[in-house]
Design a protein around this nucleic acid. Structure first.
Lengths: 149, 149
DNA sequence: AATATTTATTTGATATATCAATTATTGATT
DNA sequence: AATCAATAATTGATATATCAAATAAATATT
């Protein structure tokens, strides 16, 4: 076995662990910053409101595809968002299986307020990483996604 | 704003989404392969048994650090592993707050059997990715981790 | 030695993930 | 129109994540 292959094996061994750790570290970091600024919303909830705002009339199924979540998870997150009064839901009269989701004024307000914080978080998290590196990161992640499908 | 900066912004916007999607796609893929091969164990459970095998006498706290999990999660995963009879636990007589964790014969058996499958999964998931790219991936992920701490 | 502090683990509460099964509705088939 | 198949969302069960609080034991302090 060549030196290069040995090194490859080690990297393979840790890549998924490091990926998991990175995304988890970022989540904890971002969530803490939300909490510290007094926002009572989770990152996942924020993502879903944003998806609805940017895609009026979107169905829960489509939300799930967009934010890469299971239908069951979407249902439950939306329940919480309705309870928190960031969303309103009605039965869709064209297709009674679906629901119409509307972001409330309060929901729009929190999305806007949180938006700058999210941008800051991303900036902090990616500080010192070169554009080329970021591109390779994205490209490689996409390759992993397609390899697993 | 230069072209380069604009592009940077877009990449920043999607990087965390793509990371999340990649790790989740891999998890689903790997877990499905375990299930399809008749193994009744989750990836997280497998990781924890492995940590104990490779580090005899390890405490739950240390396990948590190693596999990057909260103490509470470790406690609950270990409960399940004891119930599944892959682990045995006793009170540590040197420090009665800690517990001694021992992998059972059955536990060792499943780790070994699953090991090849895990290697295959990683190979499949990383197919077509160059060593240099993998290195940049790892380096960049580590930078994100340190940036968030 | 008694008290206070620290540490390891557990427990409770709440959110999310995943799969399977169910419900309600719609669209297609006969 | 009645039946069947497909689809959207929900629900149930179980696993994990996260934080805070509680418990129990060890260590440090007075």
């Amino acid at each position: 076995m060549t030196q290069n292959q040995t090194q490859m094996e080690k990297l393979k061994d840790i890549t998924f662990y490091t990926m998991d750790k990175a995304i988890r570290t970022y989540r904890i970091f971002a969530q803490k910053r939300l909490r510290d600024n007094g926002y009572k919303i989770t990152i996942d909830q924020w993502l879903i409101i944003k998806a609805i705002l940017e895609n009026p009339g979107i169905s829960q199924q489509e939300i799930g595809e967009k934010v890469f979540k299971d239908n069951a998870s979407v249902t439950r997150i939306i329940e919480l968002l309705v309870k928190s009064e960031y969303l309103e839901r009605e039965v869709n009269q064209n297709d009674r299986r679906k629901s119409n989701l509307k972001v409330t004024v309060e929901g729009k307000r929190i999305i806007e307020k949180v938006h700058d914080l999210v941008l800051e978080n991303r900036k902090t998290a990616l500080a010192g990483i070169l554009p080329e590196e970021l591109e390779i990161l994205n490209k490689t992640l996409k390759r992993i996604i397609s390899n697993c499908n």
